[in-house]
Design a binder for these strands. Structure first.
Length: 515
RNA sequence: GGUGACGUGACCGAGUGGCUAGGUAGAGGUCUGCAAAACCUCCUACAGCGGUUCGAAUCCGCUCGUCACCUCCA
């Protein structure tokens, strides 16, 4: 009997038990990266959180379709005055094809996500591969009276949409009148828009713009909110279960997404549940490209960022991210990462321990195991409390440590396993293993270097060999035989691992077995 | 200015009316050839000032401090 999973919904500003629209199927969409540069740690939080979410939904028995897009068109550089697409701007500087840049960073991103233990999404749609769908959507928006064309560009008519009672601002809690009052009216390039709140659905490309597609309005490119509306609708339907992204995407990106979707398919909030993960901070400030205080994934894994003293492994980073609740900010520091690394390793040591929790032969099970069973079962059950409460992985990890302390205590004195029933113990070890590996996605990360370990083994091999030869020369055949036995054992063990020892005139070496 | 969030012990970070969060670091102990790991014990905090309440870190008010978003260049 699994307690229900509750999720905090940005739309309603409260937690509610999760109810799929069409159980057992669950559609999940996460706004993916813009692939014009390398992702930083902040960009990894959403994917890790949603990886846990989809893993847990599957664990609960749902059939999940998880979509995470790649934005390879559209976004403009914040300070660009050319009106150029970010990707093409970068491409021109490097004399590369824009799609080459996009491909390069897409691959890098996916490698990093895989290293972080994120299972690949079921569908990874590219914005550039869905131009037709986006054009169709624009046409629908225009036909429904919520879009207009100016000079080959198409804009979404926010005042018209809002006048129709569709609630622009309902996600981010904004009032159109206040937005209008707060907006500066001296902005350049506003003349094409009827209202400063309007946003582009299609932009006509100027002659320097490299990425461009034909459309009924002009040769150009789609607006940056549109892709998610179009692609989520294509793969998950006009209304699906869960849509996620960073808190900074709530406005305007997600607000505009809802508006676009609803302009086509009223009524819909595009997704039933909207989830937003909070930001990662550095010295209390949001990590961002603009501030320049970001740490890229490569820098983190390789220890090449000056903010940090050393490299941190992907699993350490994953643990670090999950040790905080996703709606809280999390401050990244050396101390915090080092603490995370130790915590992560402690959990991994726990994993290695589980199979060793066996009552020693000859020890009798205690007749009454009720007390110990109850204690262990409570510790196990607690592990699910946190994750069911809006994916509170911090609490789940805390509970796992509490469970682990008990399991460690049993391991330290195996005879005490007599006090607990096999059923309760199995339940506990299964809970631990399942949550750590399958749900939190924390995998053992081998740190030992095979070459070094082999070298170490061969050192002992050499010592044994010297001892054997010396004993033989001294005529002590009994001693020699003993050491030759050691040598044979090492050889046999290594051979089982596909390694052969090579005794050469130059010394002892090894090679992969060719058998 | 508008909207929202936050301020927890040496550090990170849960909790949100009464009950041990947890991890890391530190202290003592058990174990141990030495050590490590593990286990046991300790360090028991909630920005400040008021208020509500039998009782507040948790609710309310004020003060101080911090942060995010408020789009354009699309």
């Amino acid at each position: 009997m699994q307690p229900t999973l509750s999720l905090y919904n940005t739309l309603t500003r409260r937690k509610a038990p999760f109810q799929p629209l069409n159980a057992p199927f669950v559609g999940v969409y996460l706004c993916g990266p813009t692939v014009y540069s390398e992702a930083h740690v902040g960009n990894a939080r959403g994917p890790v959180v949603f990886d846990v979410l989809t893993r847990y939904l599957r664990h609960l028995g749902y059939t999940v379709r998880y979509v995470r897009n790649i934005t390879d068109v559209g976004h403009l550089e914040g300070d660009a005055d050319e009106g150029e697409d970010k990707i093409s701007k970068r491409a021109r500087a490097q004399q590369l094809e824009p799609m080459q840049v996009a491909e390069q960073y897409t691959n890098l991103y996916q490698n990093h996500m895989e290293a972080l233990g994120c299972l690949p999404p079921d569908i990874t749609p590219r914005a550039s591969g869905h131009i037709i769908e986006q054009i169709e959507m624009i046409q629908q928006i225009i036909n429904n009276g919520f879009g207009y064309e100016t000079n080959g560009s198409v804009y979404f008519d926010v005042p018209a949409y809002n006048a129709a009672g569709r609630g622009y601002g309902k996600l981010s809690n904004r009032v159109v009148e206040e937005l209008l009052a707060g907006s500066r009216d001296n902005l350049a390039g506003q003349d094409e828009k009827r209202s400063p709140l309007d946003f582009a659905l299609w932009k006509k490309a100027d002659e320097r713009h490299l990425m461009r597609w034909a459309s009924p309005w002009s040769e150009g490119f789609p607006g940056w909110h549109l892709e998610c509306s179009a692609m989520s609708r294509k793969y998950l339907g006009a209304e699906f279960d869960i849509h996620g992204g960073g808190l900074d995407l709530m406005f305007p990106h997600h607000e505009c997404e809802i508006a676009q979707s609803q302009a086509c398919n009223h009524p819909t909030n595009e997704a039933q549940v909207w989830m937003h993960n909070n930001m990662i901070t550095v010295n209390g400030q949001k990590m961002s490209k603009a501030l320049g205080n970001f740490i890229t994934m490569s820098q983190l894994f390789e220890g090449t960022n000056t903010t940090l003293s050393q490299a941190y492994s992907p699993m350490t980073v994953r643990f670090f991210l999950l040790q905080a609740h996703y709606r809280s900010t999390i401050d990244i520091t050396d101390d915090a990462l080092q603490a995370a690394r130790k915590g992560y390793r402690k959990l991994m040591n726990g994993l290695r321990l589980l199979d060793k929790l066996v009552l020693p032969q000859g020890t009798e099970q205690t007749a009454d195991t009720a007390a110990a069973d109850a204690e262990l079962r409570k510790l196990s059950a607690d592990c699910y409390t946190g994750i069911n409460d809006d994916l509170n992985t911090a609490r789940t990890i805390a509970s796992l440590f509490n469970l682990l302390r008990k399991l460690n205590a049993y391991a330290a004195n195996l005879a005490t396993l007599a006090q607990v029933s096999t059923e309760a113990l199995t339940e506990a070890t299964t809970t631990f293993r399942t949550l750590v590996q399958d749900v939190l996605g924390l995998q053992d990360e081998p740190r030992a270097n095979v070459e070094d370990l082999l070298g170490l083994t061969l050192d002992f091999y050499k010592i044994a060999k010297q001892s054997a030869n010396q004993a033989r020369e001294e005529g002590n055949m009994e001693e020699a035989t003993k050491h030759y036995g050691e040598i044979d054992r090492i050889r046999a063990a290594l051979k089982d691992q596909g390694i052969v020892v090579k005794d050469t005139k130059a010394g002892v070496d090894w090679a992969y077995s060719e058998e």
